[in-house]
Measured scan of single mutants.
Amino acid sequence: NQASVVANQLIPINTALTLAMMRSEVVTPVGIPAEDIPRLVSMQVNRAVPLGTTLMPDMVKGYA
């Protein structure tokens, strides 16, 4: 099963992502692949992401 990127904390809108904000977890539906975590660092979210939410490509500016 593919691990996805999950929010490790509440991430406010327009926040630049850091490693501490993300974790890898096997979830359904599948979100951004966990191997993309290094690429996500310093990218901004375009909405508030609650703790435990799977990051989807449309939630991260410049990812999709």
Rank of each mutant, 00 (worst) to 15 (best):
G62F: 09
A34Q: 10
V6Y: 02
P12D: 06
S42N: 15
P29H: 15
D36A: 10
M22V: 11
I32N: 00
L19G: 07
M43Q: 05
E25S: 10
E25A: 10
N8H: 06
M21Y: 04
A48D: 09
E35R: 12
P29T: 14
T15D: 04
S42H: 08
G62K: 08
M22E: 01
L55F: 07
A3C: 03
V49C: 03
T18R: 09
I13Q: 13
R47W: 07
T15N: 14
R23M: 15
Y63W: 15
K61I: 11
V41C: 03
G62E: 13
A7P: 02
V27R: 08
I11K: 00
L40S: 00
Q2P: 13
M56A: 15
V49I: 12
N1F: 11
P29I: 10
S42K: 09
G31A: 04
L55K: 00
M43K: 06
K61P: 14
R39P: 03
I32M: 04
Q2I: 08
E25P: 01
V26T: 10
V49Q: 02
A16R: 06
A48P: 05
T54P: 12
A64G: 13
L51W: 10
V26N: 10
N14A: 04
A16Y: 07
M43I: 04
I32H: 00
V30Q: 12
E35W: 05
Q9C: 04
T28Y: 12
M22L: 13
E35Y: 11
M59R: 03
P38R: 07
T54V: 11
A7M: 05
L51A: 13
M22Q: 01
N46W: 08
A34L: 04
P29W: 04
V45C: 04
P12W: 08
M21V: 05
P50N: 13
L19P: 13
V45H: 00
L19K: 12
A48G: 15
M22T: 03
M43S: 07
L55D: 01
N46M: 14
V30M: 12
S42W: 10
P29S: 05
V60N: 01
T53R: 10
N1Y: 04
I13Y: 15
T28H: 14
T54H: 03
P50A: 13
A7E: 00
N1K: 12
I37Q: 07
E35Q: 11
V27T: 14
Q44D: 06
I11Q: 00
V45M: 06
P29K: 09
I32F: 03
N8D: 13
R23S: 11
Q9D: 13
V49A: 06
R47T: 11
I32V: 08
P50Q: 05
M43E: 09
Q2E: 08
D36S: 11
P12V: 11
V41T: 10
T54F: 02
P33A: 05
T54E: 01
A64Q: 15
I32Y: 02
L51H: 15
P29E: 08
S42F: 08
L10H: 11
I11S: 00
Q44G: 04
V27W: 03
P33G: 12
N8W: 07
V41Q: 07
T15M: 09
L19Y: 15
A16Q: 14
V6H: 02
S4R: 02
R47L: 15
Q9L: 10
A16D: 05
I13R: 08
V5Y: 01
I37Y: 03
A34F: 05
V60K: 01
V45G: 01
P33V: 06
L40P: 00
T28N: 14
E35H: 07
R47I: 14
Q9T: 10
L17E: 01
I11W: 01
P38W: 10
G31C: 03
T15W: 10
V5N: 00
P50T: 05
A20R: 09
T15F: 10
D36G: 11
V6N: 02
Q2S: 13
M56G: 06
P57H: 11
S24M: 10
N14H: 15
A3K: 15
I11P: 00
N14K: 04
V60A: 02
P57R: 15
G31N: 00
V27G: 04
T18F: 04
E35M: 06
P33H: 15
R47Y: 14
L40G: 01
T28E: 09
M21G: 03
L40C: 02
P12G: 07
T54Y: 02
P50G: 05
A64S: 13
R47P: 02
G52R: 05
A64M: 11
A34I: 12
E25H: 11
E35T: 15
P29D: 06
P29G: 06
D36C: 04
N46V: 09
D36I: 04
P12S: 07
G31H: 01
E25Y: 13
R47M: 11
G31K: 01
A3D: 07
L40M: 06
N46C: 03
M43D: 04
M59N: 05
G52W: 06
T54I: 07
A3T: 09
M22G: 01
R39H: 08
G62W: 08
D58P: 14
L10A: 06
I11D: 01
L10Y: 12
T18M: 11
V26Y: 12
T18I: 06
T54K: 04
I13K: 10
P50S: 14
S24K: 15
T53S: 08
T15R: 06
T54M: 04
Q2W: 11
V30F: 15
A7C: 03
A34T: 08
A3G: 13
K61L: 10
Q9K: 10
G52Y: 05
M59E: 03
I11V: 12
V49W: 02
S24Y: 09
L17G: 01
T18P: 01
E25V: 05
A34V: 10
S4A: 03
T53D: 09
N14C: 03
D36E: 14
G62N: 12
I37F: 04
L17V: 04
V60S: 01
V30C: 03
T54Q: 04
D58C: 03
N46L: 09
N8A: 11
G31L: 00
L17K: 00
A64H: 09
Y63S: 06
V30P: 15
D58F: 11
M21K: 04
A48R: 11
M22K: 01
V27L: 06
V45Y: 00
T18K: 13
Q44P: 08
M43N: 05
N14V: 03
I32S: 00
V41G: 03
P33Q: 10
E35N: 07
Q44E: 11
V45K: 00
V60L: 08
L51D: 05
P50D: 12
Q2R: 14
V27I: 11
A3H: 12
I32P: 01
N46T: 11
M21R: 03
N1V: 13
A48T: 13
N8S: 08
K61H: 05
V5L: 04
T54S: 04
